[in-house]
């Protein structure tokens, strides 16, 4: 019995020590060093346009107007909401439920998946009259895992150029140039995929539009 209490005392003290070491000292030390070395990244890589923060380099945003590129389908609408979305309806529910992440979790065999994709294809074709169904790449109508994916494939950006150019009043060549500058190739030419950063491309278009 004496042995048991001695063990219990050691277990308790070592647990408390580790609680402070692993739970406070370690994360706070990382915070200190990270804030000093990588201040921009450690605070969320926020994008500053003329003194206003408009988003994060790492997170996607929901775009709905025709003059901007549209990103991937998001189950959480990229945590983007308007003032009306946080007003409770008759049942006390709001459209926006606070910050989150995730996907619809539709199994490949789920009929809901088919319905959602069909609906998205139809509205996309309507908004982009020159585009054929077979031209739509899979990433544009499938939901990302996080709901915050900042990228689309290069193909997905190319088929939107005509619409973006027309709605924004820029020439197709200017928009093409925007896509080109915001295309990120594979790391070291091997790892990952070629992709276009949607928010940064749209910021460029936004700047060009305000200049005009």
């Amino acid at each position: 019995m004496k042995k048991f209490f001695e063990n219990a005392k050691q277990a308790l003290l070592v647990s408390l020590f580790m609680l402070v070491l692993c739970g406070l000292i370690y994360p706070l030390a990382v915070t200190g060093v990270a804030q000093a070395l990588f201040n921009h990244e450690a605070n969320g890589s926020l994008i500053n346009v003329d003194g206003e923060i408009v988003g994060s380099e790492k997170l996607g945003q929901a775009f709905t107007v025709p003059e901007f590129f549209w990103g991937r389908v998001s189950a959480v609408n990229y945590n983007v909401y308007s003032k009306e979305d946080i007003v409770p309806d008759a049942k006390g529910e709001t459209v926006y439920n606070g910050v989150g992440s995730g996907t619809f979790n539709y199994a490949p065999s789920n009929p809901e998946l088919q319905k959602r994709i069909e609906k998205d294809i139809e509205s996309f074709l309507k908004a982009n009259p020159g585009v054929q169904r077979e031209q739509i790449p899979a990433d544009l109508v499938t939901a990302s895992g996080s709901g915050l994916d900042p990228h689309i494939s290069v193909e997905s950006a190319l088929i939107q150029i005509a619409r973006v150019a027309q709605a924004s009043g820029l020439s197709e060549n200017e928009v093409k140039e925007v896509v080109k500058t915001n295309t990120v190739s594979r790391e070291l030419a091997v790892f990952g995929e070629d992709k276009v950063h949607v928010l940064e491309a749209n910021l460029d278009i936004f700047k060009k539009m305000t200049e005009k």
Binding site: L46, V54, V80
Partner: peptide
């Protein structure tokens, strides 16, 4: 504040 005039929580 997003460039579409909406809000985003980060």
């Amino acid at each position: 504040q997003t460039i579409e005039g909406k809000m985003q929580d980060i």
